[in-house]
Amino acid sequence: MFKKRIIAVLILKGGRIVQSVGFRRYLPVGTIEVCAQSLNRWGIDEIILLDIEATSQGRKPDLNAVRALSRNCFVPITAGGGISDLNDITRAIHSGADKICINRAALDRPELIREGAKAFGKQCLVVAMDVFRGVNGKTEVMTGNGRAGTGKDPVRWAKEAEECGAGELLVQAVHRDGAKQGYDVALLKEIAQAVSIPVIGLGGAGHPAHFLEAFTQTEICAAAAGNYFHFTEHSPVVTKAYLAQHGVNVRMDTENTYAEASFDEQGRVAKYPSEYLQRLRFIKVHEEKL
């Protein structure tokens, strides 16, 4: 079995990384460099950078942000936001993105997926979709920063994107954004079953158990989160430690794997028993330097 991936989403607004709540409220986090360096050290598997203002402001993607990100981490980078033609894709990749993520442009012109896949291989194209689940339980693909409905059915659109040559799907539940209530498992399950390409779930993570729930109940290959990683130190590796303890296959490459950690109700690392701390005094771990 392949390893499940834990992905961080960095949302770029006004040149800063922000948290997003319900696609409406935004809270500042910090510079892109600091976020990238921290995530890189804390064992994140991938980073997705979303420039959420590019499309609505009608401008091109912020390539300097992509460059800054790629200089500060050695994990795969997906760049999204404002990519509307093949030229944008090419420029984003030459700026250090490994994959690019298209949302609006794919809805407007699915041909772009095909063109991008032809030029850079389909593994390079991630199609993002914002999905809203209404009070009646019906789901719909949204556009315009999650504000306007398209009338498209998420599963149908997922299949269409796959046929056009998408390499991965990033499925974001708009109604769960920043809600810390867990992923929309039903939605992810439905889409991951309908397509054979990898699906990345996004929206709603607030506890390591939410990742576990998504991985055990659906066939998604990766779970992404934005705000979730900003609150505690080492959040990616702590999340992975929790998942590993529950039998999920994840990559553990950091020096501290939190293998013996236990977790409290909020999913934070609980205080270690004193025997463990005593033992710890005699272990010296040298930082791996190159």
Binding site: M1, F2, R5, I197, P198
Partner: peptide, 14 residues
């Protein structure tokens, strides 16, 4: 080739 445990493209860490 796609198999039950392998999605294509193969994306991820190993």
């Amino acid at each position: 080739q796609e198999t039950r445990s392998r999605k294509v493209p193969h994306v991820g860490w190993s």
